[in-house]
């Protein structure tokens, strides 16, 4: 359907030549913007409903009551994946989990997976790369959170929390919990307002990503990257991962770019490593975490996540 609209608009209405680079770029732009917007609107509305009925305090309660010999890391990671995540809430969430008695390692499992695997990334992956890549992506994101959190819990990093956080953890206080008894109809305006807000927030990233993706699509010759960043280039994965750390975007902005890169010869593992690093590790996030963690903890956190992403990148290049 989106293909038809894009075809009609670019090749018929504007009568551009389909061999023209600009026309190809424009076609990509129109097609991807429509498709991504449609998918994003669908998924944020759905998640808005889920979120209204299954808020974060329920997630925490769930984790508090589970002591599962290491499996709690997996559980935290899965919950991190399904919980809609806003970076501006990551600090209160972090404190809230710790105060609720959830160990630091388990909290980190949640925190690592949350931006890495999220509903928007998954639906876009599904729409663009198909279910196989999506499934592999989701599983590996969850495994990164599980194992890195588990590994970090063995290091005893509690002493690297900022002092005010340690102070907070000494106090035991009744947990905030508010029961919302409104029916679905009453919740609709709120769910709608939030979905519209989320959409407004991510649409610039989508447009930016699609514009860059479109230019790559229209102007870079097919297979161009193969000679530099192909599977046989051993350094491609670590370089893409590390280069991506200072970059910040969300999944909807990165996916159209990697879609084009993959089409032009970048191996999918390298592309996924790049994407995971962009969405999972970023400078703004580090600055935010600096408020609760000492630099050493952030460094350990970031380097172990980056290391796992690199390993996964190699693995994907081998199996996909």
């Amino acid at each position: 359907m989106f293909e038809m609209i894009a075809d009609g608009l670019i090749y018929n209405l504007l009568a551009l030549d389909s061999a023209n680079h600009w026309a190809q770029a424009l076609h990509f732009f129109v097609y991807d913007t429509l498709k991504i917007s449609f998918l994003v609107i669908f998924v944020i509305s759905l998640m808005g409903i889920v979120n209204s009925y299954f808020p974060i305090d329920k997630v925490r309660e769930f984790l508090e009551n589970k002591k599962l010999f290491g499996l709690e890391h997996f559980l935290a990671s899965v919950l991190g994946a399904v919980t809609p995540f806003c970076s501006c809430s990551s600090i209160p969430l972090f404190i809230g989990f710790l105060k609720g008695g959830i160990p630091l390692g388990v909290t980190l499992s949640f925190l690592i997976t949350s931006p890495l695997v999220n509903e928007i990334a998954l639906i876009l992956f599904l729409g663009i790369f198909g279910w196989k890549v999506t499934l592999v992506y989701a599983i590996s994101g969850i495994l990164i959170g599980t194992f890195v959190g588990f590994f970090l819990s063995k290091l005893g990093l509690e002493s690297y929390l900022e002092d005010w956080v340690k102070e907070q953890l000494k106090q035991k206080m009744a947990q905030a919990s508010i029961t919302d008894e409104r029916n679905f109809k009453d919740r609709i305006p709120e769910i709608k307002a939030e979905a519209v807000d989320t959409f407004k927030k991510i649409i610039p990233y989508v447009l930016g990503g699609v514009a860059i993706g479109g230019v790559i699509h229209g102007f870079v010759p097919t297979g161009y990257f193969e000679q530099y960043m192909g599977k046989d280039n051993f350094f491609a994965v670590p370089i893409s991962t590390i280069l991506a750390i200072p970059m910040y975007s969300n999944a909807s902005g990165v996916i159209p770019i990697i879609q084009s890169l993959v089409a032009k010869g970048i191996p999918i593992g390298t592309a996924i490593a790049f994407m995971m690093s962009v969405v999972g590790l970023s400078l703004p996030e580090a600055l935010l975490l600096k408020k609760v963690m000492k630099l050493k903890l952030i460094a350990i956190y970031f380097s172990s996540v980056a290391f796992s992403i690199i390993i996964l990148g190699y693995l994907f290049n081998m199996i996909l």
């Binding site: 974060i56 925490r60 501006c88 600090i91 209160p92 809230g96 105060k99 005010w164 206080m173």
Partner: peptide, 13 residues
């Protein structure tokens, strides 16, 4: 201030 927000035990702002 995050420390003050934490006093109220909220996890989402």
């Amino acid at each position: 201030d995050f420390a003050e927000i934490a006093q109220f035990n909220v996890m989402k702002t």
